[in-house]
Amino acid sequence: MSDFEPKVVAFVCNWCTYAGADLTGTSRLKYASNVKIIRFPCTGRIDFMLLLKAFANGADGIIVSGCHPNDCHYTSGNFHAKRRWIMFKELMDFMGIDMNRVTFSWVSAAEGAKWAEVVNETVTRIREMGPYVSYKELVNKTIEEEVKNE
């Protein structure tokens, strides 16, 4: 398992975490290259079905990060994301997805070092957990069955 390199997708908002990750770069802080960032205008834009889509496509871990409470560029998008996340977490738990595969955090545009920490901590955790295939297999099996039934 030592050579396992997890695939981690990060869904971040443009105004805080994306800018924070830019700052990590400008400060030349190093972090694991396993993480790849997808930019959204706001965490409020993040449809949590995307998380399932990512798992179905083989993501081993996911980071969702945006502005700290009260700092949202759009006033309240991060609160909506947080609420949605609380609901979604229950659903994921019910579906048997290990919650440790998802990191939900607030990283501001000034927290370049925190972004590196969040990434490294997540990658280390996911590396220990090993690859995540069960959801992907489940989805593929469902599709296969549907194709067969047709």
Partner: peptide
Amino acid sequence: CQGCGTCVALCRSKSIDLHGY
């Protein structure tokens, strides 16, 4: 509209979309 997209993620029938995202 400032383009935050909160409505897009919320829309149950996926009837709203956001230009650029």
